[in-house]
Design a protein around this nucleic acid. Structure first.
Lengths: 128, 128
DNA sequence: AATTAGCTAATAATCACTCTAAATTTGGAA
DNA sequence: TTCCAAATTTAGAGTGATTATTAGCTAATT
């Protein structure tokens, strides 16, 4: 499904995603967009996310096993994840990394992603 | 649930996992173990995986958005993933990597994981 | 105006995973 | 040994995220 029409629903979703660094789930997006556009359906959120994925305007993250998370920043970058609250934070520095040919198992490499795990400041405090 | 008893079901699951580098899903494990132990239930597979996770005898991977994958090798190591067939291969070399303090966003870092994406040999062939 | 293709909304369906409760098995105490 | 309580297994119900379906709507096209 190519994104041939920019409907008001899609515009609302795009506006919410633009510059968003929260890595929201589909449900998060649905709840946020519904505030401005109360009649929108969750199915439309999923449809729009599919369309955006196809044109590489959004990236699906497999970080959180409970639900997919979405990132409007599709440039290669890495993430820092709180193992308690599942907050995802962007890492802005480049992490130079090469996989030696001998370790590529015959794969044609197309990308990479580094995940750092830890406790975010809020969850460190709550831990006391 | 600590793994206090080694039941035949658990022994069969452990035997299947031992040395396994396929990164199977719960369903994969269920199907495999059922061949030798036909009356086993899928719930037992999930229960056993929980117990094994607790004692760090197995690691849950969030690589595949469709289903959790399990790795009996709990030593820190990284993975190579086929974006087509979702095959997961171990990377055996160390990839030295440090996140500068300035990029840690106040997190207390506890771990990291590198994922390389690509096309496995089979899927490269199939692509023609 | 009629046609058609794309889109939305509601809702049903699916699928992985978790929970529940009854039955069974186990290991240790008597 | 026999008995008991705790651990475990099982089947099946339940849950929650995601996908599929379908009728109706909208906008551009003929």
């Amino acid at each position: 499904m190519a994104m041939t029409r920019l409907t008001p629903q899609r515009a609302a979703i795009l506006e919410y995603l633009d510059g968003n660094t929260d890595h929201p789930s589909a449900e998060d997006i649905y709840r946020a967009v519904r505030r401005r556009y109360p009649m929108i359906s969750l199915a439309t959120v999923y449809n729009t996310l599919d369309a955006l994925k196809q044109e590489d305007a959004v990236m699906e993250l497999s970080i959180d096993t409970a639900r997919k998370r979405y990132d409007p920043d599709t440039r290669p970058h890495n993430h820092l994840i709180c193992t308690t609250c599942k907050r995802i934070v962007d890492i802005r520095v480049r992490l130079p990394l090469r996989l030696p040919k001998s370790e590529q198992s015959g794969f044609k490499i197309t990308g990479k992603h580094v995940e750092f795990y830890g406790l975010c400041p809020d969850c460190q405090d709550a831990q006391v």
